[in-house]
């Protein structure tokens, strides 16, 4: 791997990590568990479009592990990891179809993230109680996903030239 690439990866991971930290501070008390802005997903999304799937996956996984160890617990890291993996899979496949723009890909990712967490909760807690939250998590994943997607598209538009020149 070229040194430039390595430093770029490091930069992206640091950025995603900082976003996780900000997100963690911003936790708004909600009566629905798991509603989040998903700020770090901006970095993953931008990486997916600028540098490809492998980079995005790398940033995503390292970010989750780092954030989980720093501000959460192992359990929380498992939840995020499940959410992120499903989200990543869905985003990559939707992008592959070429029929959706970044907001669409991001919306699907946000929703998939929430569904992934519900699935893990259902397995770990041996309960289907959380399906009750599904409609609210669908809406929140949709809205935050759209916002993140629009922001991501702007970033990609501006950063494309810079990344190419590296």
């Amino acid at each position: 791997m070229k040194p430039r690439r390595i430093s770029l990866y490091g930069l992206l991971i640091a950025l995603a990590f900082v976003f996780s930290y900000i997100e963690n501070m911003l936790t708004i008390p909600m009566w629905i568990p798991g509603i989040k802005l998903g700020l770090a997903n901006v970095v993953v999304l931008a990486a997916l479009y600028l540098l490809g799937g492998r980079c995005a996956l790398f940033v995503s996984v390292v970010r989750v592990v780092l954030a989980g160890l720093s501000y959460g617990s192992v359990t929380m890291a498992i939840y995020s990891l499940a959410g992120c993996s499903l989200s990543f899979l869905i985003m990559v496949s939707l992008k592959q179809t070429g029929r959706f723009g970044m907001p669409g890909v991001s919306i699907a990712g946000g929703v998939a993230h929430n569904i992934g967490q519900i699935i893990v909760a259902a397995i770990l807690l041996e309960t289907t109680a959380l399906t009750y939250y599904l409609p609210f998590l669908l809406v929140s994943g949709c809205v935050t996903g759209a916002a993140i997607g629009v922001a991501g598209a702007e970033i990609v538009k501006r950063a494309e030239g810079i990344v190419r020149s590296l």
Binding site: R99, F100, G101, P103, G104, P135, F136, L138, G141, G149
Partner: peptide, 24 residues
């Protein structure tokens, strides 16, 4: 075209959520 699909995806998910919620 992509924009239209994005909006449709948004709408479909919101509709699904609404249906789930209404059902419950």
């Amino acid at each position: 075209m992509k924009r239209k699909n994005d909006l449709m995806l948004f709408g479909v998910i919101l509709l699904a959520a609404l249906l789930f919620w209404g059902y419950s």
